[in-house]
Design a protein around this nucleic acid. Structure first.
Lengths: 233, 233
DNA sequence: GCAAAAGTGTTCGAGATACACCCATGA
DNA sequence: TCATGGGTGTATCTCGAACACTTTTGC
């Protein structure tokens, strides 16, 4: 399997190769864009996979930690550092790749809305964002990986503050609610949502308001401990 | 790192070897014994690790699925087939093993009380059960792996019927309660426990009673769908 | 003044918690 | 008859769900 990242980082020495076994890190990079949960995909470049898409990732180098390898893919493909990144699952079916044995350690990452560059009408032609609800055909088992990541994300909404990772440093409660609604795929009650989220005691009001059209401006909030994902309840 | 399992299964061809990279599957095998949550450990046999213990596991063979490899370790070390087995996390720090590069895909398994043989005063001298609350010194990062598995198990008690996997086909509600109490490390109220667990609608009364001493016999229950772990609430 | 999003409280029901006594048996 | 674990019901509290109107702004 030829990986875009291998080209981007030609100096990597794969941890394996001689016997045809590779260990890769594959990253499901989520963001909220166009009122959808979207993932960043790169075009497959192997001739037999023309027209298919795949997850950003790369071969784990001899000296690489798995997390480091995932971070590198994230930096190379999405151009971001320091975002939320979590290991998901390791896929090792000997037949998952027809050419060679590839064990994929999958990760998922969350990119804040304001840092989701690349893609879209004016974006880099080589990578793009896609709605998870409407994915193109992906190589190998990558669609399974995306689905597993989505399920994990949905589950974590319930018992952690992970959703806050999609937002910039300060944000309105309506923006936060919208993140939840998009990921869960359902409308939430505004009053109950605000009550619940403020009861977590991990948000603080700022003095600022956001003016955003011909209506009442919204209060901005910040996380008490930015970047930290907490378990709740 | 020399693995007991490698000896047990000398016919396995490691997926790697030439460049000194191995992929192993390591299994945290839990059971309830002696009113404790215990794990099965094997003595480390590498000379520099004399006296230390390690998790059962084995090198992933070229043709092995990861799950298959974990199952094989489970069968070889604990002598059981078909028990609950779930992938946990993949550890890939390049420095986790001083000798060579080893990427460990960890699993955890639950063995029903009545099938936990091996170990103990009369058991095989080469492997033994240990209380997770009082582990001997383990090789490498194996203590971290056990702790992660324990945390996952505790978390799953809350939102799944995973605890039922520790019990035989039919069991009393007191036995079930005891499993919860041991894993959680706290006493539970008998009436509330029974109410909650029966409200799950996944247990059925049997016609049988268990006579177990000079007191009222206990009703035996069975899972409606044995072997199936369900998510709850 | 009107359109559009921000902001705010109360009621209700379900499920969790706390709690104490009688039952069936074997010795 | 007594020691032992099995088995049961009620009152209370907490938390989530449902629900509608006023506020502030820009045009």
């Amino acid at each position: 399997m030829n990986r875009t990242l291998t080209k981007v980082l030609p100096n990597r020495i794969p941890a394996q190769g001689a016997l045809g076994l590779d260990i890769t890190a594959e990253v499901v990079i989520f963001t909220i864009r166009q009122n959808e949960l979207q993932v960043l995909l790169v075009p497959a470049d192997h001739h037999s996979q023309r027209g298919l898409w795949m997850l950003p990732g790369g071969v784990v180098g001899w000296e690489d930690d798995l997390d480091t390898c995932a971070s590198r893919a994230l930096a190379a493909q999405a151009g971001v550092h320091g975002v939320y990144l979590e290991q998901l699952y390791t896929f090792g079916d000997p037949d998952r790749c027809p050419d060679r044995r590839v064990i994929a350690v999958s990760y998922y990452a969350l990119i804040p809305i304001h840092r989701a560059h690349f893609g879209g009408p004016k974006g880099d032609r080589h990578i793009d964002w896609f709605s998870v609800a409407n994915l193109p055909t992906l190589v190998l088992d990558h669609a399974t990986i995306v689905e597993l990541a989505r399920e994990r994300l949905v589950a974590k909404l319930d018992y952690s503050t992970i959703a806050f990772q999609f937002l910039p440093e300060s944000f309105t409660l309506s923006e936060l609610q919208s993140v939840y609604e998009i990921i869960l795929g359902e409308q939430l009650d505004k009053r109950n949502f605000r009550k619940r989220v403020l009861a977590l005691k991990c948000l603080q009001q700022t003095a600022e308001l956001r003016r955003n059209g011909s209506h009442r401006p919204a209060r901005l909030y910040q996380l008490c401990t930015p970047g930290k994902v907490e378990y709740i309840k």
